Structures are given as C-alpha cells and as structure tokens.
Simulated scan of single mutants.
Amino acid sequence: MIARARLLAVVATVLAGAVGIISSTQTWLTVVLNDGAKHSLAVAGADAIPVLAPLSLAALALGAALSIVGLVLRYVFGALALAIGAVSGILTAQVAFARPLSSVASTVTTATGLTGEKAVSDLVLRIEPTLWPAVTLFAWIVLVGAGVLTVVTARRWRGSGRKYTADATTPASAATGPAASRPHDAIDSWDDLSRGDDPTAR
C-alpha cells in the first residue's frame, strides 16, 4: 500500500508538471477585438500566466527527484508541490473564470501597439476561454493531492539510502525480510537502473 502511495505521488507530480508545460504553449483565451472587423487574437497559457512554465518545470523536477530523496526532503518536496499546486491553481482559476484584462493585455499590445489599461479595455470586445485553463486547473488539483499524499505517507516510504547500503553489504542470495520478498514496483526498477543493474535480466 505504501509502495503504491509513493508511486502515485511521484507519477501524479510528474504528470501535473508535464501538463502545465504543455499547456503553457497552447491557446487559453481568444480575444475578439472591437475594431469593426472583429479580429481575434489567440492568447497562450504562458502569456496569460507568465509564471506558468517556470512553476510547471519546478513541479516536473520535484516529481523526478521525489523517488530518490531522503525523509527530510520528501517532506520539503511534498510541501513545495502543495504550494506550487495551490498558487498555480489560484492563478489558473482566475483566468478560467474571471478572465481578467491583464491576462490578455500583453498579447493585445504586441498585436496592436496600444498600451495602457483603458486603451486595451476599449479595444477588447470579449474574451473567450478554451478548454486548456480547465484542464490545467485539474492538473493543479492533482498536484495538490500529490503533495498532501507525500507529506502524509513520506515517513513510511522505504529509504533509498538504506536499500543501497544493504545491497552493497549483503549477497543477493542472503536478502530476507519484507523488502526482499515484496514485488518490485516501477520506482524500484528505476533505483536498480541508477545502480547499474538491469531489472529486465531477472
């Protein structure tokens, strides 16, 4: 059960970060201009929320490192994942539901050359969201859940450092106990590869 919790926390954190990175390049909002012809402009996620890509990269890095760190860093990384998910979720929800003018201002200014809140506001007829803000918001909810799961179960995860020590001092034929008898999971296979062992050779 704890092995599943660890795997779930790692996979959920990595997936949330990956969705955030992909989403940052996709169209989040369509701006219809009040220019007679009603031209439209596409606003990418990274333009709507400038910190979207950096926060997503941070979440992805946390997930990649979470499976190999010690107890203290598990708590730190879990708390960071929770914080990143909460902050990103709030910012994404604002864009998805409130659609503030600030989320499209830079795109409108780049396309038209107009600056200033009033000038941009007068030019924007309406702002229409795509599905990407909702998809990304769900990813941040998953990240928050992964952070909570990490903090709650971190102490019961098997320590990588102790595993490496046992492997270095104990012959494989002499390995006993729960750690030796339980099935390998995906995280264990990754740990084996990092030591130079090929788990597919078993």
Rank of each mutant, 00 (worst) to 15 (best):
S67E: 09
H184L: 07
L137C: 03
V144H: 09
L80E: 05
R6L: 05
G20A: 07
A168F: 09
R158L: 01
D35G: 04
S24W: 10
L62Q: 00
L82A: 13
A98S: 14
S103H: 07
W190E: 09
A86V: 15
L55F: 12
L71K: 07
A16C: 09
M1F: 15
A18T: 08
L123G: 07
I84P: 06
S189N: 12
I141E: 12
D192F: 02
T27M: 02
V142F: 00
S160D: 12
D35P: 11
R162D: 05
A65P: 12
A119T: 12
L66S: 04
G89R: 02
A119R: 07
R162S: 14
L91V: 01
H184G: 11
R158P: 02
A119E: 00
A12Y: 02
V124K: 02
G196D: 06
G17T: 02
A58R: 06
R156G: 13
D47E: 08
Q26R: 11
L8G: 07
I21D: 10
L66D: 03
A175S: 14
K118Q: 13
S103D: 00
L193K: 04
G45C: 01
G63E: 06
T30Y: 04
A180M: 06
K163Y: 14
I90T: 14
G113W: 02
S189R: 13
T25Y: 08
A3V: 11
T110W: 07
V152Y: 02
R74N: 08
L91H: 00
L125F: 04
A180P: 02
D192C: 09
P50V: 11
W132V: 15
R99K: 15
G85T: 09
Q94H: 08
A168T: 05
V87N: 04
R6T: 11
R182W: 03
A139N: 02
V142D: 01
L55A: 11
A175T: 10
P133Q: 09
G36D: 03
V124H: 03
L143R: 09
V69I: 09
L15F: 08
V19S: 06
V19A: 09
K38R: 15
P199H: 07
A65E: 10
T170W: 09
L101Q: 11
G113C: 01
I49A: 02
T110D: 11
P54A: 00
Q94G: 14
